[in-house]
Design a protein around this nucleic acid. Structure first.
Lengths: 151, 151
DNA sequence: CTACGACTTCAAGTCAGCTTTAAGTCAAAC
DNA sequence: GTTTGACTTAAAGCTGACTTGAAGTCGTAG
């Protein structure tokens, strides 16, 4: 079994070498063997990275992925690991979908606003907002400009 | 008409004074009048902030909000402004909804994986991924842990 | 007069997930 | 023997939307 350099691996999984080093640094990937200080990877590393990529694609943070890899007692089957981590994610997504629906409605109605000025818009909003509690701190949700998931 | 301090305003709209200063600094809010170097706001500022908050809630970035306020010729009605900015956002959201559906499916199926080990998972993923082009650089999408939009 | 509290500015810090840069190491090609 | 190119490390930089900290400025209460 031939060993791969970090560039080989990066090319095969579609990452930059710097990303792979970063994953190692934060403990998401195990430290590979070295040949004269250079990293050498076997195929298992490739598989691990493919799994990592997939997990990133479906919305897991690197923290969560670390749990996926190392947060279970040895021998825990993948299905159980995935299931455990997916539960929380699915709940979040449900929330998110709901939020998006609300936002879509708000966006669609925003164009129908009959206010003569933005100031008037704000006056209405301020009144409606009166009873409500201020939003919790931090962004409420965010998404990147272009969503091209491409799974 | 009594003038408000920055703390008054912050309390009324549910922001911290630092956020309001920040908005002014990046040119999203106009510089208010000062009384011995301290900011003093009128009600219009309140309305503007309410509008800003609403725009943030429905997913506009501060850059976009600056456009909402200052990116149109004077006298352009709010409806037109909102409509213009909403179009792009709605398209993004449609994409996002699609992505989420794909992710939900993936998450639901992830627990059914019959692999004996994560390595085996990765082996399969790597093969499937072979034909595909590597993901474009940068995160594909992100969302915060808890979505509590609360409109 | 001085202490207090609320404000001011400017710079730096925060989060995640990397990338970039600088300076050094290494084996192989010329 | 030197040059090349791929690698190494550690540290700093990036994005967006702020917050935090330090050091200074006010008007007022005691």
């Amino acid at each position: 079994m031939p060993l791969l350099t970090i560039s080989d691996v990066a090319r095969q999984v579609g990452l930059r070498p710097s990303a792979i080093r970063y994953y190692e640094q934060i403990g998401v990937l195990p430290r590979p063997q070295r040949v004269s200080r250079r990293r050498r990877y076997d195929d298992a590393a490739l598989y691990r990275l493919a799994t990592l990529q997939r997990a990133r694609q479906i919305g897991f943070t690197l923290d969560e992925i670390r749990k996926l890899f190392f947060g279970f007692r040895n021998g825990t089957p993948p299905s159980e690991r995935w299931r455990k981590l997916s539960q929380q994610k699915l709940a979040e997504l449900e929330q998110l979908v709901h939020s998006i629906k609300v936002i879509q409605l708000a966006l669609q109605n925003s164009g129908k606003c009959g206010c003569a000025s933005l100031e008037e818009c704000g006056k209405g909003l301020l009144r409606k907002q009166c009873g409500k509690r201020a939003a919790k701190r931090g962004a409420i949700f965010r998404f990147k400009n272009s969503v091209d998931l491409n799974l």
